[in-house]
Design a protein around this nucleic acid. Structure first.
Lengths: 234, 234
DNA sequence: AATATTAATTGTAAAAAAAACACTTATTAT
DNA sequence: ATAATAAGTGTTTTTTTTACAATTAATATT
């Protein structure tokens, strides 16, 4: 086989930033590093890309090996290439981020794995440049969520408007007017009102909604103004 | 030195998508490939990342080696990792895109280099997955330009409102109302009217404007609604 | 010197979208 | 029967966006 001579070949890793929502706050999934160096320290789900797998396959494999999770929505975030980002040996890392409903994957994510959810506002010190990755992922999530209906990936199939609003409020760290919020989200036509209510969090109960799957698929990339005052974003 | 054993090390390339504006249309800078395989075919500026350089250094070096250009604004686009994207040997590529004023770099980009500008709507067949890279870069440019004052990177220091408008019209392939366009761009407070006029393209002449550098730096990441009907974007 | 030509410049009114704001309702607990 | 709690709902005001056409400055023509 013909090859490119005299070029440096480098380790290529994939690191996954997994965001989850438990109904009240945004969380981050971390594992304790198994490799020797920095063993036991908290880390993103990471691993090296293999000879015959592309990034999509690699990220799915790494996530599955470390957490047991499967079928999770993932999106490329950024490639990190600082020369000394891994002190052992130069490693380029392609970071992916994922959004999941914590409860949906509760059983998959069992004790066989040393993965643990941390509130996004209270995470432990991370190895390498993983904190930088998390910060960038948070920023991208906020940016994207302001204009695209992406946060539904964090919710269970059935959810209430108050739940949806507190998810948005958690992510944007801002209190929205519930009348305006409701009107805006309803105007996307993505929500289908159910006949039953969630009676957990109030006496009156809040009607469940489901996503209109067809419209959701069609509007996933569409531009919607989902939050007030987007001018504050960067 | 400690190393990670039994892991595959892979070639890591950087490919640069260079957009330029000549005052009337958007163009793409391409080179004829120097390496053996597919030699002579048109290609993005590309090269392998070296042992001791990060992506920023690498992209600047590659761009300079192939075009003589220096000091160009670059931004990471996406990492491409398909197993067979380079038929010679597996190569991961981190794509960067750049925006430049063609005339500003006319002299740097001399005949020593086999780089050539092509109208974005009429580019030759490209090697590997470079067309995919270009398509993604175009999409990202449109998306970003709709909300951030990024297109000024394509313009000379002094420019007129009609020039600015035709740049936007070229990129969005849409005719804007000049009264509304002018008002919207002026409302960003980024433009400083000059006392002299460009007399090239009309009898009356059009006043030059310059960027307010301070405000530009402060607003580069700010969210502005720069085009009508952003809802059409994805 | 008057007139025609060309493209730049400027304003206003109508429509749509966003923001501000508070009371009623359903249900459970007392 | 009443109190307590959180869900649900409408209207007005303000802001933003859109649609639309006449005037002006400079040059070219007669």
């Amino acid at each position: 086989m013909v090859r490119y001579h005299k070029q440096t070949r480098i380790l290529v890793a994939i690191d996954c930033i997994i965001f989850g929502f438990d109904g009240s706050e945004l969380k981050l999934l971390l594992v304790q590093r198994g490799l020797e160096h920095e063993k036991g320290k908290w880390s993103l789900m990471g691993g090296f890309i293999q000879k015959d797998e592309d990034f999509v396959e690699g990220s799915a494999r790494i996530l599955n090996e470390l957490t047991g999770l499967e079928g999770v929505y993932m999106e490329q975030l950024y490639a990190f290439g600082d020369v000394n980002r891994d002190p052992i040996e130069r490693t380029v890392s392609v970071a992916y981020f994922a959004l999941i409903d914590i409860h949906k994957y509760e059983k998959q994510l069992n004790e066989d794995y040393h993965a643990e959810w941390f509130p996004i506002k209270d995470t432990p010190k991370l190895i390498f440049d993983h904190q930088q990755m998390v910060d960038m992922a948070k920023e991208k999530l906020r940016y994207k969520a302001a204009f695209h209906p992406i946060l539904f990936e964090l919710l269970p199939e059935k959810f209430t408007l108050p739940q949806l609003q507190s998810l948005y409020e958690g992510i944007f760290d801002y209190q929205f007017d519930k009348r305006n919020f409701s009107r805006k989200l309803q105007s996307t036509k993505l929500l289908v009102k159910q006949k039953d209510k969630d009676k957990e969090s109030s006496k009156k109960g809040a009607f469940y909604y489901k996503l209109d799957k067809r419209r959701y698929a069609a509007n996933f990339h569409a531009f919607l103004n989902l939050i007030p005052n987007p001018g504050n974003l960067k």
